[in-house]
């Protein structure tokens, strides 16, 4: 069955859609659009589409990915037109392209993500101090963080190898960070973990509700584009 890769954005009210609800939302949009989607076999058939790395609730995504299988070939432009017109506010199609029928699942291709983070501080921050925090963090040979799993057990992980890029600028009491970190089924770092470690180094006073994260882009290993 012909396979299509869809790049879309999830912003505004749609950024609060949970991953489970996003499945439902796309399933309904696909039906409204009348796309000839392929169905899984079995007792309770469901449309064949799959998502890349889930976004945390509340985090906007500029370039997210999903794959969809259709029962017949369709020009990608027609998919943009029909599905794009059936999506609720905040979900927009950015690009659609056909991929080989046997290409690996989108989830398995995703390796890293690029984020922009705006940090609001309670007071102006010295630019030099902020620079030092970043370079100190990047200079660490390892960076152990503690995570709690679903059963409530604590486990430590070294996140340093998964931090590929960390840059930032301070404007008074606001800092804007750009980071690329490990994302996907082979290991995942949450941007909040990096921020916690970074602001912890310099004891930087982050304001209440002062962390604003946007996921800009998802990459294949080595930072290669997924648009192929």
């Amino acid at each position: 069955m012909p396979r299509y890769r869809i790049r879309y954005s999830k912003k505004g009210p749609a950024r609060f859609i949970s991953h489970l609800d996003l499945l439902r939302t796309f399933e309904r949009a696909i039906r409204r659009a009348g796309l000839p989607v392929a169905f899984s076999q079995g007792f309770n058939p469901h449309p064949k589409f799959s998502f890349g790395a889930p976004l945390p609730v509340g985090v906007p995504g500029e370039n997210e990915y999903m794959d969809i299988e259709l029962a017949e070939e369709m020009p990608p432009g027609d998919i943009v037109k029909s599905l794009g017109g059936a999506l609720p506010g905040g979900l927009d199609l950015e690009a659609v392209f056909q991929v080989p029928d046997n290409s690996p699942a989108i989830m398995s291709l995703i390796d890293r993500a690029g984020y922009t983070v705006r940090l609001d501080f309670n007071e102006p921050i010295d630019a030099g101090l902020f620079e030092r925090c970043m370079s100190d963090l990047l200079a660490l040979p390892e960076l152990q963080v503690t995570r709690t799993n679903k059963e409530g057990r604590k486990k430590t992980h070294d996140i340093r190898p998964g931090i590929f890029k960390l840059e930032g600028v301070v404007y008074g009491d606001v800092a804007v960070l750009e980071m690329e970190i490990k994302t996907g089924s082979a290991g995942n770092i949450r941007p909040e973990e990096v921020i916690r470690e970074l602001t912890g180094i310099g004891n930087l006073p982050v304001a209440e509700y002062g962390i604003h994260i946007t996921r800009n882009v998802l990459y294949a290993p080595g930072g290669r584009s997924l648009d192929e």
């Binding site: 949009a29 509340g58 905040g90």
Partner: peptide, 20 residues
């Protein structure tokens, strides 16, 4: 926009649904 990420099920309060 600031408080929505910090409440349960923020979609309850956003509006913007299909056919709204």
């Amino acid at each position: 926009e600031k408080i929505l990420p910090h409440v349960q099920k923020p979609s309850r309060y956003t509006g913007g649904e299909w056919n709204a």
